[in-house]
Amino acid sequence: MKTIKALMLAATALATMAFAAQSSAEELSLKGKKIGVTVIGTDHDWDLRAYQGQIDEIKRLGGEAIALDAGRNDQTQITQIQTLIAQKPDAIIEQLGNIQVLTPWLQKIKDAGIPLFTVDTATPLAINNTTSNNYNIGAELALQMVNDMGGKGNVLVFNGFYSVPVCKIRYDQMKYVLTNFPDVKIIQPELRDVIPNTVQSAQSNITDMLTKYPNDGDVSAIWACWDVPMVGATQAVEQSGRKGVRTYGVDGSPDFTAMVADPNSPAAAVAAQQPYEIGKTAAQNVAKHLAGQKIPPFTFVPAVLITKENAAQTAGPFLPKK
């Protein structure tokens, strides 16, 4: 009975916190404010939803969004950042991209006296980065993978975007987990995921690797820091007819989540994020800052690990919309 009472009290507390957060968001305003939004690209489901969450919330709060999509081109994003600086908005939100390329331009935003906020870009130049807890995501997904492997076997790893901060964190956390499981090995050389043609490229790469390692047990798992390449990787495993090879990714893209939810698919787990909520929260943090509120360096929006075992209870919100 004590346990049930404790759970009820905890649920009440969470509901109260959620209501308070909602009420606080409703009281915020960006009326008369111009907010710049720069994103490296929106061709990926996660990127598009986070981007849209920012724009929608800025408008809902009465502000004007100056939203620019760089179409996956670093130089275009630099040019667009220069454009935003020249327009002197009340704040700028930057989403994803190559941190090595971005850093000097993020510094220019700060030097111009424009408050900088980021989405999934960890940098000391930003007042706040709204994101998932990628340290937890990386470790949790890796532990699920190792558990499914029984603590031994070989892993094919895609590592094409280590310069993107969230991918670096997830990869480093995966590697850290593996230091405690010496019988789990990463097959070298690592694979490189690409943009565009991500699914097709990953499918081709995995088809080649399964041909190179033809025996059951040669490959036990396939990992990437996001889940679009895992759609192609899963298709390659299915077409090969290989058993015992499972795929793992991050984001909760509808296509890969549907594979994880399919009991007959090799897709084993996905760390599903809430990109629209992340974008929306970033815009709210801008409003809070401009209203004089103190904002922490990071705002973490919860993610959920969807597995074969819990998909019936967790996958619904992330599945393709009918």
Score class of each variant (00 low, 15 high):
Q52I: 06
E27R: 14
Y176A: 13
A10T: 15
Q200I: 08
D262F: 01
I114Y: 10
I278K: 02
S204E: 12
T307F: 11
T131P: 00
V119S: 11
R72C: 08
E190L: 14
I66L: 15
I206C: 06
K288E: 12
I78T: 11
T299A: 04
C167F: 11
V270P: 02
S253A: 14
V194M: 09
T207F: 03
N197Y: 09
T76F: 07
R72T: 05
E27L: 12
I109V: 15
R170Q: 09
A272Q: 05
V286Q: 08
V166E: 06
E190P: 03
P263M: 06
Q80W: 08
A233P: 01
A224P: 09
I35Q: 03
I187K: 06
N134M: 03
A261G: 02
S204V: 11
A311G: 04
V37E: 01
Q80E: 15
M149V: 09
T234R: 01
G160P: 10
D43K: 12
T247V: 09
I295F: 07
I99K: 05
D251H: 03
Y135V: 11
E238S: 13
S220Y: 01
V166S: 11
R49P: 01
D56R: 03
L106F: 07
V199A: 07
I169S: 03
T281E: 13
G53S: 09
N310S: 07
T307W: 10
G292F: 05
N133S: 07
S253D: 15
S163A: 13
P115T: 06
L7H: 07
A236E: 11
I55R: 05
K88P: 01
W46T: 05
T211M: 08
N310D: 09
I169F: 00
S163H: 04
A258H: 05
N147V: 01
V119G: 01
T307K: 12
D227S: 08
I4C: 01
L178C: 05
V228L: 13
D208Q: 10
A283L: 00
G62N: 07
M145K: 03
N180E: 12
V166F: 10
G244H: 06
D43P: 00
A282V: 00
S163L: 06
P214N: 12
G138Q: 02
P104C: 02
F158S: 04
D218M: 01
T3A: 14
A18K: 02
T314R: 10
E277Y: 00
N154T: 03
Q144D: 14
R60E: 09
K108Q: 15
F256I: 04
T12Q: 13
V101H: 01
D251S: 14
A15V: 11
